[in-house]
Amino acid sequence: MIPKDLRRALGSDPGGVFYLHGEDEFRKGEAAAALVAAHLDESTRDFNLDRLHGSELDAETLASRLGTPPMMAEWRVIEIRETESLAGSSRMRDLLLDAVRTPPPGLALILVCTVPARSSARFYRDLAKMARSLEFRAVGRDDLPGWLMEWALERHGRTLEAEAARAMAAGVGSDLAILAQEVAKLDAVAAEGESITMAHVEAAGTRVPRQDRWGWFDLVGKRRFPEALEGLHTLMHHGESGVGLTIGLATHMLRLGVAVHGGQRALESALPARQRWLARSSAAQARGWTPAEVEEAVEGLLEVDRLLKSSPLADLHHLESWLLARMCRAEEVA
């Protein structure tokens, strides 16, 4: 039986050809391992599992492996990494596409592929169309906290609090394999039934920055502009770019705009799945803004973006000016 989290894309029946592609090597590897485990029993696994690399394969070996039946089991599994290395050989392409069209009985063929950038080769399109295909796009920076919360719940049955997830994403970086190891470490630290909190993150020794970008966006959203000014210096000191912060902050202000006009439910509907955890806090922040203030703030950020790309002044100067303008406007209203 195909693992539950893969069934929507790949179906529930075992066997056939699975095409796992995209930029995210970690999640492709996890999916491939789950498919192997779903098809093979431990007692006969060694007889029925071939793990191959496309860069080391020749046509004769591939044809032989594809034609080998299961031994003392229902399924035989062939996992081919670096499938893109086979695209240059017409013989290799034909062997794989024939297997896709007419899967050999008792075979589960798992093709793990990273399509070369800007490639328009028909081979990849045919695999995606005819095989049981699932694309693993890279998890974007803004999606990392949501992915961490999702991973902790699905893999460990733990609730990972948003503050802890944000701190991990800011402190550890975007390597999902390392982040997954950190979640496993936190699962061991937390008592049974506990949610994973910032206290657990700190107790486990995970490097936590004094200021993370998501917390900084919240300071602005909560109109705590003096603290946001101080936090801006910290973020820039730790390597954040003016353009990156401006784009992220503009996105945050647009979220507030959706919530100002439509409330939390409208924002939840508009957000990508891995960012829906932001809806509650963003809706709360939105209550402190008027539609006109959000519009003015976004227009100001568009100007900041233009200046960042054309002005000789430091990035910090332009973002400071934007924050100071918000402070002055808030004082005028008060």
Rank of each mutant, 00 (worst) to 15 (best):
I2P: 11
I2S: 04
L10Y: 11
D13N: 13
G16R: 02
E23Q: 11
D24F: 13
F26Y: 15
A38S: 10
H39G: 10
H39L: 05
S43F: 03
D46I: 01
F47E: 09
E56G: 06
L62I: 05
L66K: 11
T68D: 04
P69W: 03
W75C: 12
R76C: 00
I78Y: 01
R81C: 04
T83A: 15
S85F: 12
A87D: 06
R91K: 15
M92Y: 07
L96T: 01
L109N: 08
V112F: 07
R125L: 14
R125E: 15
A128Y: 11
M130H: 15
S133C: 10
L134T: 03
D142V: 12
L153Y: 13
T159N: 12
L160F: 13
E161T: 04
A167Q: 06
M168K: 06
A169N: 06
G173R: 09
E182M: 07
K185V: 09
L186T: 10
L186A: 13
E192V: 11
G193F: 09
E194V: 00
V201N: 08
R213D: 04
W216M: 08
D218M: 06
G221F: 03
R223N: 07
R224K: 14
F225I: 14
E227S: 11
G231N: 05
G242Y: 04
G242N: 07
M253E: 00
R255F: 02
L256F: 00
G262H: 07
G263T: 13
A270P: 00
A279R: 00
G288A: 11
A292G: 07
E293C: 04
E296G: 02
L302D: 02
V304N: 03
R306T: 13
L308Q: 04
S310C: 03
A325I: 09
V333K: 15
